[in-house]
Amino acid sequence: MNFDFSEEQQMLKDSVARFVQDEYDFEARNKVVANEAGFSQENWQKFAELGWLSIPFSETLGGFGGGATDTMVVMEELGKGLVAEPFIASVLMFGGLLQSTAQSDERDALIGGIIEGSVQGAVAYAEPQSRFEMQDVRCRAEQDGDAYRLSGEKSLVLNAMSADKIIVSARVSGEQSDEQGIALFLVDANAEGLSKTSLRTMDAQVVANIALENVTAIALCGANEGLALLKQMRQQVIVALAAEALGIMEKLNATTLEYCKTRKQFGVAIGSFQALQHRMVDTFMASEQCKSLLYRAVCSIEQGEDVANIEKNVLALKVMVGKAGKLIGGEAIQLHGGMGMTDELDVGHYVRRLLTINAAFGDADYQQQRFAELSLAS
């Protein structure tokens, strides 16, 4: 198969790489994440001007009309720069769900705002008790005329503190873990009855726990469509996160290799020690395995393969990213010695992001169990 990128995809990749190299070094990144929002609005507007925020949206909505490959090339380069701007949360999660719902003037206007960089969004799907199970929903929705009233709690909502609008999963009917009866609702981020508690994850992202008490909301889908839309979004975002993780792994491997060539012990570079060479080969092979599985998952999505086959490819990818991330991150820290643990060196920050990606939507152990169950079922 031909895995070469098209001319447009290569230009897109080079555009993101130039931004990271010229304007987003480690020092600049630290200044960005230190502010209250956890990212730079100036950078976000630059992303809009460069057309990056339009990539996953259809041309009829004013977007680039890109597919999984286009998103992959962007996320890999963003990963190399450890870019903190909420591309995943606002564009892929919030925007992706909006695009999957029925056409309406408000939906189209919000997507137009995302593309222009004037609208930020978030998706609130996880709850304190739900862990990785998206169907475990206690948040309730009660109809109130043409609108709904939401009451419940949501946990660790990415980009909630900067969002203008939030998509919330809530139960219209059924019991706590029923797969039926879940719908998606659009709420104003500053609506009456909605309160947010800000906190930071270990990779310095700003997230929020949300409490809703009779919050006015607009239904985006039918009572039994919400979970399917969330699962579709999860699959797309897992692939994007895997691409980001691949960029991080490649960066860590390159940084560690360079360090091993320059750090001397007993009068020689530590990279000359055969034992360390073997360990560097192991980390290189781990990243290459992730790349192969990533390409396989992206190809299966773009070629429209069987749904079960796509799901298995995505699950295998998530498992490999989790395991390879722990290996590569651990070796990078250990081979850098004591410096690898300090905040002053970028290595530890990359590793923390890898660990966060592993936990997102279910860690490697959880996804391996899902893969086994799907394989047995088929």
Rank of each mutant, 00 (worst) to 15 (best):
K165H: 11
N313K: 04
K251E: 14
N224A: 10
K46Y: 11
G145H: 12
D146V: 12
F371C: 02
I248M: 09
S54Q: 05
I238G: 02
T101A: 12
E192H: 06
V351I: 12
F57Y: 09
V237D: 00
I166L: 10
V91L: 06
S58L: 15
H336A: 13
E192N: 11
V74S: 02
Q120A: 09
Q232V: 00
A377C: 15
I218Y: 13
L293M: 12
I328E: 03
T262E: 15
Q277R: 09
G96K: 00
M233L: 06
S378D: 08
V187G: 05
A240K: 01
A141F: 06
T69Q: 07
G112I: 03
E106D: 15
I357Y: 02
M233G: 00
V74A: 07
P128E: 06
S6N: 03
V74N: 00
D136T: 14
G67F: 11
E331G: 06
Q265L: 15
V321C: 05
A124D: 03
T201E: 10
L150D: 00
E258T: 00
N214S: 13
G62S: 13
L53V: 01
T256H: 15
V168S: 09
A183Y: 07
L156T: 13
A89P: 01
S54W: 02
S378K: 09
Q135V: 14
L194Y: 07
A48H: 15
S195F: 10
D188R: 03
Q180I: 03
E7Q: 05
M285S: 14
G65E: 01
F47G: 03
Q180H: 04
S100R: 06
R352T: 13
A122W: 02
E305S: 12
V123D: 02
F371Q: 02
A316V: 11
D146K: 09
T356W: 09
A308P: 04
A204I: 06
L374A: 05
L199T: 13
